Amino acid sequence: MVSAETLRLLADIGFMATSGGYSKQARSLFGAIELARPDSVLPHIGTALNYMNLNLHQEALDTLEKKALTLEPDNATVQAFMGMALMLLGRSSESERCLNSITDSEDTLAASLASNLLSELRQHVNKKPSAPGLH
């Protein structure tokens, strides 16, 4: 069995790979992690992030909903990334509900991510031009 420390290291390498534009390599790493630790949400979060970096936002959301949430329905990090995917899909109200639900999470990293995403979401919504009409 792969140790938790090794799993985290491999996942970090996968996150760096997808962030650096090495999506094929990231996909391979996350696939290997999933085979080694099928009980972990990390490969699914990584796969979802890889999809988001490829502008495949629905696939990212599907991965999080169908794989990661099945393993850990209350995982705040999974929910934060779901909020991100929803935001990228333009589903702002769903994203806001999802992210608001974890801003007070004990998982401080997930809560921080959710707060940052909410801030970005609100800035985006406030920048939308108003509809033309009578003034």
Rank of each mutant, 00 (worst) to 15 (best):
Y22I: 03
E96K: 15
N75T: 02
S105D: 12
I13Q: 15
A114M: 02
K24H: 12
R97S: 13
T108E: 12
M87R: 14
L99Y: 03
M87Y: 14
I13A: 12
A4C: 00
L9Y: 14
N126M: 14
L35K: 12
L134H: 06
L71N: 10
S112H: 10
Q123P: 00
A114K: 00
R97T: 15
P73W: 04
T47R: 11
D62G: 00
T63D: 05
A110P: 01
L61K: 04
A60H: 04
E72L: 08
L69S: 14
L88W: 08
E5R: 07
L61Y: 11
N100G: 08
S23K: 01
R8Y: 07
P129S: 12
S19T: 11
S40K: 02
P132L: 11
E120K: 07
A60P: 06
K127I: 09
A48N: 01
A110V: 00
G31M: 04
F15R: 06
Q79W: 06
G14T: 10
Y22E: 15
R37I: 06
D74S: 10
S105C: 09
V2D: 11
H57W: 07
A48W: 02
M16F: 12
L42W: 08
A110Y: 01
T103Q: 15
A11E: 10
L9G: 08
S92A: 14
L69P: 03
P132V: 12
E96S: 15
S28E: 15
S3N: 06
L117Y: 10
Y22K: 12
G90R: 03
G46N: 01
I45A: 01
I102F: 06
I33D: 08
I102H: 06
K128Q: 14
L118C: 03
E94W: 07
L42G: 03
F15P: 00
S105L: 11
S95L: 04
A36M: 14
N50F: 01
S40E: 07
T6I: 13
T47Y: 00
K24I: 14
L7M: 13
M87I: 01
S105M: 10
E96V: 07
P132T: 11
N75H: 11
G14I: 11
K128E: 11
A4Y: 08
L88C: 04
T63L: 03
L42I: 09
A80M: 06
A76L: 05
G133A: 11
M16Q: 14
L99P: 03
V78A: 01
N126Y: 04
D107W: 07
K67L: 09
L71K: 12
A80T: 05
K66N: 15
L35A: 13
S130D: 14
M1S: 13
F15G: 00
P73S: 12
S119W: 02
P73G: 13
L61G: 02
L29Y: 06
L71W: 09
N53Q: 13
L10I: 07
L134R: 07
C98V: 05
L117E: 08
K66D: 15
C98F: 01
S95R: 02
A48Y: 01
T70V: 14
L99S: 02
H124V: 10
S95C: 06
G20F: 06
S93G: 08
K128D: 08
L118Q: 02
A26H: 06
L56F: 04
L9P: 03
G14P: 10
L86T: 00
L86W: 00
S28D: 13
M16Y: 09
P38T: 05
L113S: 10
A85D: 03
S3E: 08
S130K: 11
G21P: 05
E94K: 12
E94G: 07
